Simulated assay, not measured.
Amino acid sequence: MSGKSTPLASFPLEGTKRGIISVSHLEAPYGKNSESVVSIGISLGGEEESPDWKVHIPYSQIDNLIQALELAKKNRS
């Protein structure tokens, strides 16, 4: 169903022993002719290629996500 995945970055998930957060470019995630997305994955066991959770963000909405994350960071308890 999903197309080619190109890793962009990965880093340790704070508070876990082996967890990682991975960020990739994903082409045709929903089949032929679907728009590319940024895929953000969380793997508790360190398996970057098969995350436990993932979310796909359309490129057109990255700025909205960044704003929301900055707001969350500013307002964290």
Rank of each mutant, 00 (worst) to 15 (best):
G45F: 08
T16Q: 10
S60R: 15
I62D: 06
R76L: 09
I40M: 12
V38C: 10
T16S: 14
P51W: 01
P58N: 14
S5A: 08
P58F: 07
K73Y: 06
H25A: 11
T6M: 07
L69R: 10
S60T: 13
S36I: 01
P12I: 11
H25V: 03
Q61I: 04
V37C: 12
V37M: 07
I40F: 02
S77T: 11
S77F: 04
K74Q: 09
M1R: 08
D63N: 11
D52V: 01
N75E: 11
K74D: 01
L69W: 09
E70R: 11
R18S: 06
W53P: 00
Q67P: 00
E47W: 02
L44K: 06
G3T: 08
L8R: 04
S50M: 10
S34N: 14
G41K: 03
L65I: 06
I62S: 07
V37G: 04
V23C: 12
L65S: 02
Y30Q: 06
I20L: 12
Q67V: 15
H25D: 13
D52H: 05
E14W: 02
S24G: 02
Y30K: 14
I40S: 06
K32S: 14
T16R: 10
P12T: 11
I66S: 00
Y59H: 15
S60E: 14
E49G: 10
E48K: 09
I57E: 05
S39I: 01
S36K: 05
L26C: 06
Q61C: 12
L44R: 04
T6I: 08
G19V: 03
L71D: 12
I57P: 00
L71N: 12
P51F: 02
K74P: 00
K4L: 10
S24D: 13
N75V: 09
G41Y: 02
E70F: 03
